Simulated scan of single mutants.
Amino acid sequence: MCDSNISAFPLHRRRKLVEGIARVLESKNGEDANAFWRSTAKTILVQLSESGIAPGLAEREVGTLLHAVLGDIATRSTAKLAR
């Protein structure tokens, strides 16, 4: 199997996706949060793979998505503290 040149709209720029994942993660703690993220990441990796995205690129997309989600959580937490 060879790598593909297909690229998708960056996951970290999909605001509804980022915010949705962030809200769910904020409602969970510990292993529940870890399990949710692992399941979400696996589902997204499968979807990207089925769309023809190369495995390395798919993994980078999911990693960048995680950073965006964590950034969204941090921004929301900072805003709550500022109130």
Rank of each mutant, 00 (worst) to 15 (best):
R60D: 12
A79F: 00
A58L: 02
L66Y: 02
R60W: 00
A58R: 02
R60P: 00
T78L: 14
T78N: 14
E50R: 06
L48V: 05
E61L: 10
I53E: 01
G52L: 08
R76Y: 06
G71W: 10
I73E: 12
G56V: 13
L65E: 13
L45D: 08
G52A: 08
A54T: 02
G52S: 08
G56N: 14
A74E: 14
L57K: 04
D72S: 15
L57S: 07
E59N: 09
V69L: 08
G56H: 11
A54G: 01
Q47D: 10
S77V: 10
H67G: 13
L45E: 09
L70A: 10
A74M: 11
L48Y: 01
T75K: 15
A74F: 09
K80A: 15
A68K: 03
E59L: 13
V46R: 12
I73D: 10
E50D: 11
H67S: 15
G56P: 04
T64C: 09
A74G: 07
G71I: 10
V69A: 09
T64E: 13
G52M: 08
G63H: 03
L45W: 02
H67I: 14
L57W: 02
G63K: 04
S51I: 01
L45N: 09
T75H: 11
G52K: 04
E50W: 04
A58D: 05
P55Y: 02
P55H: 04
A79W: 02
A79N: 06
I73N: 10
D72E: 15
P55R: 03
Q47L: 12
V46H: 12
A79H: 03
A58Q: 03
S49P: 00
G71L: 13
T64G: 09
L57M: 07
G63M: 05
E61I: 08
G63F: 03
T75S: 15
L48M: 11
A74P: 01
R60K: 07
V69Q: 09
D72I: 11
V69P: 00
L66E: 08
V62Y: 05
I53H: 00
V69R: 07
A79R: 03
K80Q: 15
P55C: 10
K80H: 07
S51L: 04
P55D: 14
A58M: 02
S51V: 02
I53L: 01
L45K: 05
G52R: 02
A74V: 04
V62E: 08
I53G: 01
R76G: 11
R76N: 14
H67M: 15
V69H: 07
L65M: 13
L48K: 01
T64M: 12
P55V: 05
I53Y: 00
I73L: 09
L66H: 03
E59T: 10
T78C: 12
K80W: 03
E61F: 04
